[in-house]
Design a protein around this nucleic acid. Structure first.
Length: 318
DNA sequence: ACTCGAATAT
DNA sequence: AATATTCGAG
């Protein structure tokens, strides 16, 4: 099971475009309304920090105009960062933890809230992994390709770990069945999509993930017309600003989205700002063989049982 | 020194 | 259960 078959691509691997050039991943992240519905109004998040290498002073301005990763709402436990600007109505008494520090000044010991992997975010993740290929799909690279502001390598690593387990499990019992992805129809689905993997079920799993793609079969182009993805939208700022404006306009009270009784709420995401990342070419084998763009239908469907699935997210946003 | 990945912790 | 954090290995 060695991968010596990868000499052809190790070649163009170096000619690949830099990360900033590519990012064809079509994903808008969560819809603005949804994001805003949750919270986002909180220009005070201490986000981002994902540049690992000795990257220079990420031109990270004091920034407060971009809702990049809106971490949000203090979970029922702590989070000393009360959105001063927006009471957000829901004023559940934050039981003071007793951690005296919970004052108003976040000080430097701020812990960012747990990342919530929304289906949209996960999709982006899967896309990145798919485009990278399992071999090159390592946290750092995935993170870069995802271009999600505020996402850290650890975030991705953690998710990746779990994702791999999921794939493994699927391989185990998939034998023919839907193989993944979607379970679409097969009905063979069973415990596999138990509540445990609901997240994963929401995104298509590229075929080659499940079964080792044979290099000698078929034909795929060694070279990739990747050049297609060269767009520079410097207007993103304005876009972001627009979102902010929208936020101010809309004050939607959140009241029904899947916020698990357990605790945390979700943060909003936006495409990362002008990426300061100029370095390291991220090897991005264009998508290999067939790769379904996915049909995101609510999981479920399932087999006759009648497993009804509440779509807790806008099904047609993507 | 850095990143990955499994194990472990919350 | 879902994420985070720790820790050993390349």
């Amino acid at each position: 099971m060695r991968e010596e078959d990868s000499n052809w691509f190790s070649r163009w691997e170096e000619e690949l475009p830099s990360p900033e050039e590519l990012m064809p991943i079509t994903q808008t992240l969560i819809t603005p309304d949804l994001a805003l519905a949750f919270d986002i109004g909180n220009p005070h998040n201490s986000n981002n920090n994902n540049n690992t290498t000795t990257n220079s002073p990420t031109p990270q301005p004091p920034n407060n105009s971009l809702p990049t990763l809106s971490q949000s709402v203090p979970p029922p436990s702590s989070v000393p960062s009360p959105p001063p600007s927006q009471p957000l109505s829901s004023d559940f008494d934050s039981a003071e933890l007793g951690s005296g520090a919970a004052g108003d000044e976040p000080a430097r010991t701020l812990k960012r809230p747990r990342l919530v992997w929304t289906p949209q975010l996960h999709k982006r993740f899967v896309d990145a992994v798919a485009h990278l290929g399992i071999k090159n799909a390592v946290p750092k690279t995935i993170m870069q390709l995802m271009s999600v502001d505020g996402l850290t390598r650890e975030n991705v690593a953690s998710h990746l770990q779990k994702y791999r387990l999921y794939l493994k499990r699927m391989q185990g019992l998939s034998s023919g069945g839907g193989g993944g992805g979607g379970n679409g129809g097969g009905g063979a689905l069973s415990a596999a999509d138990a509540a445990t993997d609901h997240l994963f079920a929401s995104a298509p799993v590229p075929h080659h993930f499940l079964h080792p793609v044979r290099p000698n079969s078929d034909h795929f182009l060694p070279f990739v017309p990747v050049a297609a993805a060269l767009q520079h939208h410097h207007n993103q700022q304005m876009a972001a600003a627009a979102v902010v404006a929208a936020q101010q306009q809309y004050h939607r009270q959140v009241g029904q989205f899947g916020s698990p009784p357990g605790g945390q709420y979700e943060h909003g995401f936006l495409a990362r700002q002008p990426q300061p990342v100029h370095r390291m070419a991220v090897p991005v084998p264009a998508h290999s063989p067939t790769y379904v763009e996915d049909l995101d239908s609510p999981v479920g469907g399932g087999g006759g049982g009648g497993r009804k699935v509440l779509t807790l997210f806008p099904t047609g946003d993507d």
